[in-house]
């Protein structure tokens, strides 16, 4: 028999978990389905901007959020949702393992997916010197030379983390200046192992079996080829459309789901919160995701209360 819930939250990052805590406190029977409970914040090396934690490891913060949720009577299912179908009386949600659940309303808190460089041999070098996860793979590059592609907060923290174990980190930013918070800017300046290359871009991955270098768009110290042992990519992210496209939700020009202040999307019965929305004025952070999750859950509670 298909299990039924008034509310199913898909995604268990800061947005989904906060919504879950609010729904639990409102005694709304809720199921959270998340492939990775804790979400993307678990990949952050150091988090310094979540109130209550002057400095905390991202994974610890993610785990604490999951533990916090578990204090409330909310079911958490660790699974990947493969399909959402709109029915007359709600939604049918199917996981990759073919488990089916019914929801009267949905809250989408799926986060985003990392952008790739879009270079032809990117897949071939993945795990051969190219990585999207410094926390996972940094250890393989002890005392080596690496580059980080990107110039935002996440790229800068990635470079700072890698500088702790490597000999040198080239930080390659597309913009003429780093696009990170001033405190990270200062940290980069203080870290002598980081060499900043601004207004530039990786255009080619070079190597036979493993990556051995990259080609830059503009010459750096008269060279366009930069010999490196590893390249870490952190050039932002965008919402994945696989699940949401069939739901016909209004999005902005970059594919982020448009929401009202209360989290409602353009389709009735569907709320959205967190990094996948255009609701945070492009400040995609744990705190803004959590806030959107809280507001959406509160509005969903009001919706059920009004319905009686």
């Amino acid at each position: 028999m298909v299990k039924e819930f008034p509310l199913i939250i898909i995604g268990g990052g800061p947005a989904g978990l906060t919504a879950g805590i609010y729904a639990g406190r409102s005694q709304l029977k809720t199921l959270i389905i998340a492939e990775q409970p804790g979400g993307t914040i678990g990949y952050a090396h150091r988090v310094q901007n979540f109130p209550g934690f002057p400095e905390i490891g991202g994974l610890e913060l993610a785990n604490r959020m999951v533990e916090h949720l578990q204090k409330w009577p909310v079911e958490l299912l660790i699974a990947r949702v493969g399909q959402i179908i709109k029915k007359d009386d709600g939604f049918l949600v199917t996981t990759d393992q073919n488990q089916e659940y019914r929801a009267e309303v949905l809250l989408l808190a799926l986060g985003t997916e990392k952008r790739k460089l879009g270079l032809p041999n990117e897949d071939r070098f993945l795990g051969r010197g190219l990585s999207y996860c410094a926390l996972c793979d940094g250890q393989f590059f002890k005392n080596k030379t690496v580059a980080v592609g990107g110039g935002g907060d996440a790229a800068v923290t990635m470079a700072l983390y890698l500088a702790e174990m490597t000999n040198k980190v080239f930080l390659i930013s597309l913009q003429p200046e780093l696009n990170c918070s001033p405190s990270w800017h200062q940290a980069v300046k203080n870290q002598k192992k980081i060499e900043l290359i601004c207004d530039n871009q990786v255009t080619e991955l070079i190597g036979s079996e493993n990556l051995s270098g990259i080609r830059l768009k503009n010459p750096y110290q008269q060279q366009t080829e930069l010999p490196i042992d590893g390249l870490f990519v952190e050039i932002g992210s965008a919402p994945s459309t696989t699940l949401t496209e069939p739901l016909n939700l209004a999005t902005d020009s970059e594919g982020f789901i448009k929401i009202k202040a209360n989290g409602r999307t353009s389709q009735s019965g569907i709320w959205a919160a967190g990094d996948l929305t255009s609701g945070s004025n492009k400040l995609r952070q744990a705190i803004t995701a959590a806030a959107e999750g809280a507001m959406a859950a509160d509005d969903i509670y009001r919706y059920f209360k009004q319905k009686g």
């Binding site: 993945l126 795990g127 051969r128 010197g129 990585s131 996860c133 996972c136 793979d137 250890q139 393989f140 079996e209 493993n210 590893g230």
Partner: peptide
């Protein structure tokens, strides 16, 4: 565990986990 078996990671040319 690649932390305990760096030699094997190197032998198998593992530069990313999980592999």
């Amino acid at each position: 565990d690649i932390g305990e078996h760096e030699d094997l990671a190197e032998k198998f040319n593992v530069l990313s986990i999980p592999t």
